[in-house]
Each structure stands twice: as structure tokens, then as C-alpha cells.
């Protein structure tokens, strides 16, 4: 229930400022493979029972890849068919609509050698770029088998956390979940040393016919990574007044604020 309220809030904020249907998209290139990952995350670092989990999809094209949550992907695909506001509302209110708190989209090598990160923070959609080859991987000798693929260990430091990755040269992609990139094989599993965040491959599937990797053509707030973190942090702190603006009752506001306080464990710790 807690998290539902949050999605609702995100949604309210989105629909009160944005156009609901008939969006335009820029097609980039066809995706030939899709990798499904399970993503477990502990949103409150002080409470080990605050573990959430969701499914993530990594679409791989020849040059570009896109990483989104399964829920975002499904909702995005569904929303393209809508022609009226009623349809949008009906879809959003349906209990069958998948929901996930993980709402970011990550495009890699788009533009060339860059990571594009897109996320909506009420009431704007932010977009920033960072370097694609920013990971200083160190290869280790340990090997395991994941889903029938032989994988080797590699470690790196990123965003203030120590990450342990398992990549498989049998799948000669340089990609992986989240922003992770640059190993000579697909990352099948990656988690931080404290096990707060854990991405694990669930399936590898060919896409035929190929699907388009695209990006919504809209007025993004283009910022830097630090600028985005600032917006994210201030949203977290500012939640009560925003909730009140969206017409939430007092109890819900407090609850939202409390829930936000519990979301104290971002995947990237280095905020400045």
C-alpha cells in the first residue's frame, strides 16, 4: 500500500502537467535481444526488511541499448494506443496495470559514448548525460555458471559503492544492468558489496521481429547528474507540500513523508 501511494503521486503529478496521449517518439535503432533482470533493492538502509523487487528489461541493439523496468515498458507500450484521456485514466486505475517504483530509463551509447538518463520527478522530466566508459573494471579469476553461461567476476567502484559483477564472454555484449558498461561480455549479475542492490539475469530472449529502441520526443529538463540529484533530493524533502498541492488528505501526506524518509538509500551514494 505504501508504495502505491507513491506511484499515484508520481502519476498525478505527471498527468496534471503533461499531455496524456499522442506522444511523439524518436526511433533510434532496432533491438535484437532483450535481457530480463530481477532487481532487488533495499530502500531503507537501516531496515533490511524494506527490500523491494521488480523486473527490469535491457533491450540490446547493435549500437544502442535501453534499460527500463518492465512496468514502465508495458505502460509505455499500452499508452501509445490511447486516443482519449478517459482511456488513460481507465488504464491507470485498473488493478491490472503493472506498477513499479523504478521509473528511470537509461540509454547507452546514445549519443555516442554517452549514457542518457531520463527520469520524471514531479513535475518535470529530467534528462542528463554522462560518460559511457567511466567504469574502471578489475577482472578477477573467480568463475560461476549463471543460467548455463560461464561468468567471470569483475569489480569496480561506482557512485560511492563497491560493485561485484559477473559477466559472460559467451554473450559478447559490453552491456549490463543500470549504467554498467564496458566488460567483454554481458553482465549477468551485479550487486553492491553490502547487498543493498542486486540485479540478476532472469532470461535472455531474441526479439523477432525486432523492436524499436526509441525515446520520447518531449521538452526534457536537460541537466547534469548533480543537477538531477539535487532535484531528486529536494523532491524527497519537499514531499509534504507537493502532496498537499495534489490534494492529498493530511494523513496521506504524513504517510508519504514518512515513506519518503525511508527511501534514504539511493543506488548512487555520491550526490555531489
Amino acid at each position: 500500500m505504501k508504495t502505491y501511494f507513491f506511484y499515484f503521486l508520481m502519476f498525478i503529478a505527471e498527468c496534471s502537467f503533461a499531455q496524456l496521449f499522442g506522444h511523439k517518439y524518436i526511433e533510434i535503432e532496432p533491438a535484437k535481444m532483450v535481457i530480463t533482470y530481477s532487481y532487488k533493492f533495499q530502500s531503507d538502509s537501516t531496515d533490511a526488511s524494506s527490500v523491494g523487487s521488480t523486473k527490469m528489461l535491457l533491450f540490446l541493439g547493435d549500437d544502442v541499448s535501453k534499460f527500463v523496468s518492465r512496468a514502465v515498458y508495458i505502460n509505455d507500450t499500452a499508452s501509445r494506443k490511447f486516443t482519449s484521456n478517459e482511456q488513460v485514466f481507465q488504464y491507470q486505475n485498473s488493478p491490472e496495470t503493472p506498477r513499479s517504483g523504478v521509473t528511470f530509463q537509461i540509454l547507452k551509447n546514445y549519443p555516442r559514448d554517452k549514457i542518457t538518463f531520463i527520469q520524471h520527478i514531479p513535475s518535470e522530466t529530467y534528462r542528463f548525460e554522462e560518460k559511457l566508459n567511466q567504469f574502471d573494471w578489475e577482472i578477477r579469476n573467480d568463475t560461476v555458471t549463471i543460467g548455463g553461461f560461464k561468468a567471470q567476476k569483475a569489480v569496480c567502484e561506482f557512485g560511492g559503492r563497491e560493485w561485484i559483477a559477473w559477466f559472460s564472454p559467451e554473450l559478447p555484449y559490453n552491456d549490463g544492468p543500470y549504467k554498467f558498461y564496458g566488460l567483454p561480455g554481458l553482465i549477468l549479475r551485479i550487486h553492491d558489496s553490502r547487498n543493498f542492490f542486486d540485479f540478476e539475469m532472469l532470461s535472455v530472449n531474441k526479439l523477432s521481429p525486432h523492436l524499436m529502441i526509441d525515446i520520447r520526443d518531449k521538452d526534457y529538463i536537460v541537466t547534469t547528474k548533480q543537477g538531477f540529484f539535487k532535484a531528486e533530493d529536494s523532491f524527497r524533502e519537499d514531499i509534504i507540500s507537493r502532496a498537499s498541492g495534489a490534494g492529498m488528505s493530511n494523513e496521506s501526506q504524513q504517510k508519504a513523508a514518512k515513506n519518503m524518509a525511508k527511501r534514504n538509500n539511493p543506488i548512487e551514494l555520491k550526490r555531489k
Binding site: 532472469l202 532470461s203 535472455v204
Partner: peptide
């Protein structure tokens, strides 16, 4: 590349 599914 063969598709695989790891048990959820």
C-alpha cells in the same frame, strides 16, 4: 544466441 530463462 540461444534464449534462456532462469527460473524466477
Amino acid at each position: 544466441i540461444e534464449g534462456v530463462t532462469v527460473m524466477a
